Simulated scan of single mutants.
Amino acid sequence: MDTIHFSPVKLAITGQEFRVVRSVQEAWTLLAEQWPMRPGKAHHRALTICTIALQGRAGAEIAREALIGAAAEAGIYLSAGSQPQKDTSNLLRSSLPVPHLIGIGPSCD
């Protein structure tokens, strides 16, 4: 997989552990394997958008905005300049084709 970079996003994973995410692959890994909070709707949306971006079907900045939305939903501090520029809540319903994603989502066993 190619690494698709975007503007860095700084998250406070715990009170003393910060993480800077600089690519769609890093965002996907954090969301899928290392998310410190209970996943919510924005988390699921961000994971799906990152998966689509890694397939070349969505842009890196859309994935970045979705990551920021998931972090905001989880109450994770975002560094200055990392606030979302647009609402990503309707991205999957309105503009992105969503492929069948094995292993992602509440319907998976």
Rank of each mutant, 00 (worst) to 15 (best):
D2Q: 15
T3I: 15
I4D: 00
H5E: 15
H5G: 09
S7F: 07
S7W: 12
S7T: 12
L11P: 02
I13S: 09
G15Q: 14
F18D: 10
V20H: 09
V21L: 11
R22V: 03
L30R: 06
A32E: 13
A32Y: 08
Q34D: 13
W35F: 14
R38F: 01
A42F: 01
H44I: 08
R45Q: 15
R45D: 13
R45P: 04
A46K: 06
A46L: 05
A46C: 07
I49R: 05
I49W: 03
T51P: 01
L54P: 03
L54R: 15
Q55I: 01
G56T: 06
R57C: 06
A58Q: 04
R64N: 05
R64I: 03
R64A: 06
E65F: 07
L67T: 08
G69R: 06
G69T: 04
A70Y: 00
A70S: 14
E73P: 13
G75K: 13
Y77T: 12
Y77C: 09
S79N: 07
A80Y: 05
A80G: 12
G81C: 05
G81L: 10
G81I: 12
S82K: 04
P84I: 08
Q85F: 07
D87K: 04
D87R: 12
S89K: 11
N90M: 15
L92Q: 03
L92D: 00
L92G: 05
R93S: 13
R93A: 15
S95D: 08
P99N: 06
H100E: 10
L101M: 14
L101P: 01
I104Y: 02
I104M: 10
I104Q: 11
P106R: 15
S107T: 11
D109T: 09
D109I: 06
D109Y: 08
